[in-house]
Amino acid sequence: MLHDLSLDVRAGELLGLLGPSGSGKTTLLRIIAGLDRPDSGRIIFGGDDATRMPVQERAVGFVFQHYALFKHMTVADNIAYGLNARKRSERPAKAEIKKRVSDLLDLIKLSNFGDRYPSQLSGGQRQRIALARALAVEPRVLLLDEPFGALDAQVRKDLRRWLREIHDRTGQTTIFVTHDQDEALELSDRVAVLDRGRLEQIGTPDEVQEQPASPTVLKFLGDTIEVEAIAQGGRVLVNGRETPVTAPTNAVGPVKLYVRPWQLQFANEEHAHLNGFVRSSYRAQGRQRIEIDRPGGGLLVVEASDNARLAAGLPVGLRINSGYVFAD
C-alpha cells in the first residue's frame, strides 16, 4: 500500500529506497518497472509519460530479489534473452549479441561462465548474472529489489563495492531497494526513506543522517534514545538543565529529545542531564556498550571508547552533547 508520493530520480544517479519491510518500497519499484499498476498517479521517464506503457516497452532493467534466472538456460542465454526477445527487425545480429554477452560477462568478471547453468553457480555469481541480464537491454533505468538480501554477510560486502564500481563506470541510472541502512548509506548518491507507504525524506546520505526530517527517519537510521525534555524559545532543557541542543521555534513545552548513543558522555553529578545505575557492560568492535537503568524505569544503552569496565550497580551521570528535537 502506497500513499500519494512523488519521487524525482536524477539521470545517472544511484538512488537507494530504504525502509522497513512493508513500507512499500518494493511496490514502488514494481510500479516504476510496470509490474504493478498504481491506482492513480503517473510515471514519467525522461519526458515521456510511461504510466500506461506496458512493461515490455518501458526498457527497464529489473533485478529480482531471488534473481529469477531462467533455470533451463545457460548463463549466456540468460543474458542474451532480452535481445533475442526483440522483434526480428530490431534484433541485433547473432554475432553482435554474442559480443554483447561476452562484454557483459567480462564486466561482471565471469568471463568463462557463459556455458554454465544457474544451478551451478553460487548466490553471488547468480546475482551478477541477473545484473548482466538486466543491463544487456541497455535499460533507461536499472531497478534492483533487495539486491543483496539473499547473500552471506561477506559476499554482500564485496558485491556492494562491486555494484558501486559498475555504476561509476557505466553511469547507469539505478534505483535499488533495501532494508539495510548501512547498505543504503554506503552505496547511494541519494537515499529515499520510506515508511508505511509514505516518503519520509530524500537526500544524500549525509543529509539524511545529519538533518533527519522526522523521528521515523532518525530511528530507522540507527540506535536512538528518547528523552523527555522541555523546549523554551529554541532552548531545550532536560531535568531542568540546559542542553546544547536547539529546538525549532514552533516546538514549545514538553517535547521528545532524540539522542544517538555516541552523543552522550559520562559526566559528574552537576553537569549530568540524566543519571542511573550501571546494569552491565560489554565490549563490541572496540567500543564499550553500557546498559544503564534509569530511576523510575527505562534502560539506556550508551557507547564509550574508554576501556574502563564499569562495575554493575555503579551510579553514573550522562551529559547530552547534541541531539534532535522535531517540530510537531
Binding site: L2, D4, S6, T27, I31, L35, D39, G41, I44, V55
Partner: peptide, 18 residues
C-alpha cells in the same frame, strides 16, 4: 519521475502484469 498511490481493494482478481 514516479508519482503513485496504491490502495488495497476488494476485487475479483488481484492485479498482475502476467
Amino acid at each position: 519521475m514516479a508519482v503513485a498511490s496504491v490502495r488495497p481493494k476488494r476485487r475479483f482478481r488481484q492485479p498482475s502484469v502476467i
